[in-house]
Nucleic acid binder design. Sequence first.
DNA 1: AGTTCACCTTGAGATTACCTTGAGATTTTC
DNA 2: GAAAATCTCAAGGTAATCTCAAGGTGAACT
Lengths: 210, 210
Amino acid sequence: MLKSIFERAGYLQVMTASSGEEAIKLISGKMPDMIITDVMMPGMDGFELLQEIREISKVPVLMLTAKGEAEDRFAGFELGADDYLVKPFLPKELLLRVEAILKRVYPEENRQIELEYVMVDLDKAEVIREGKSISLTAKEYGILLKLAENAGRIVTIGALCQNACGEIWQGYETTLMTHIRHLREKIEKDPSAPVSLVTVKGLGYKLIVK
Amino acid sequence: MLKSIFERAGYLQVMTASSGEEAIKLISGKMPDMIITDVMMPGMDGFELLQEIREISKVPVLMLTAKGEAEDRFAGFELGADDYLVKPFLPKELLLRVEAILKRVYPEENRQIELEYVMVDLDKAEVIREGKSISLTAKEYGILLKLAENAGRIVTIGALCQNACGEIWQGYETTLMTHIRHLREKIEKDPSAPVSLVTVKGLGYKLIVK
DNA sequence: AGTTCACCTTGAGATTACCTTGAGATTTTC
DNA sequence: GAAAATCTCAAGGTAATCTCAAGGTGAACT
């Protein structure tokens, strides 16, 4: 039923699972932008599912509770649910809440960052340099995004690797370095003397924005 | 009533307004971190207030609606409310929702420490001294972090060494000393007469914060 | 005053973390 | 299925950082 509500509302990629275990399997393949789950389910219940999800991701989760499970709301919020909805509900209400959450979690304003020598457009994944646009590759984009989210702050090499290649990142450091190099060639005037993407020896990297 | 709920929950700065007009006046002085408003109010109602707020700020807004105003929720979300809550509600429910919103909107604060002569920014691993920033090296950062975590308390030389070089730290004391020296050169006015990173003879060191 | 002890100060060599480049592997695109 | 783009990884190089030792200082105690 949920699938049909969302597809009619224009959401293009809706996946469904008929149990918590199935859901885990599904999202370990590809993490969706948002998850909606019932609390009462056969086998693994909604809270257990939420807990497992939170161990691997911060993806927003909306929980559906039956009437009279008021206390459950607290349990859900405390485990890190983003919202809950009491059944029965109007389709429109669900859609509005989902929209609100998506807008909150993935703000789509054109995220532009001004660096010393270039502008970075995170939505288009490109660098504007002297009027010309240079596109970023997937890995470069991922790394730059992570740095931009923590603009000014130090981001550890571990965090960047994890962001680029997943949980097991030991041994990836050397590759990360070359991505950093390529990024610098795109955003710095002199890539060997960086002023925007600065290295903090022994700690990590940081992005200096104007 | 809301004010007392929040103050008892540990929120230190709670402002109240008895009408929409008063609220506008209040926030144009100092924008709060979050706003909670009723929908039904004499004079300007909650939606009008929300609209005016959105013209000047993206501050998160939680709306309180009376039962039976189900349709109002939609209006609120569409205008950019961050959440709503149906009256009557439990104080705990309100607190959980507010906490959820605040955590979403203000993910983390900057860990800054004010010392006698300088500010220390732990996220950037740098010292701000007379407007200029001096960066810390990895070891210096590690030591200062440990001291900052125990600000005001004595930290033994053993604890600091362990933090810097691992379990087997015997014989490292002399090296620690030079790191301390370098730190003092960055954070003290006169490194030879320290007032922020003080040595406690025979016991260890301690960081005096303002 | 002299001795001791704990900590300070400085410089120079050793180390390590990071840089740079190129070339092969992999993925994407047409 | 071939070409192009992108990713990965290794080898050699460099400079900032770390380490350590030698000499110094001042307080406490005899």
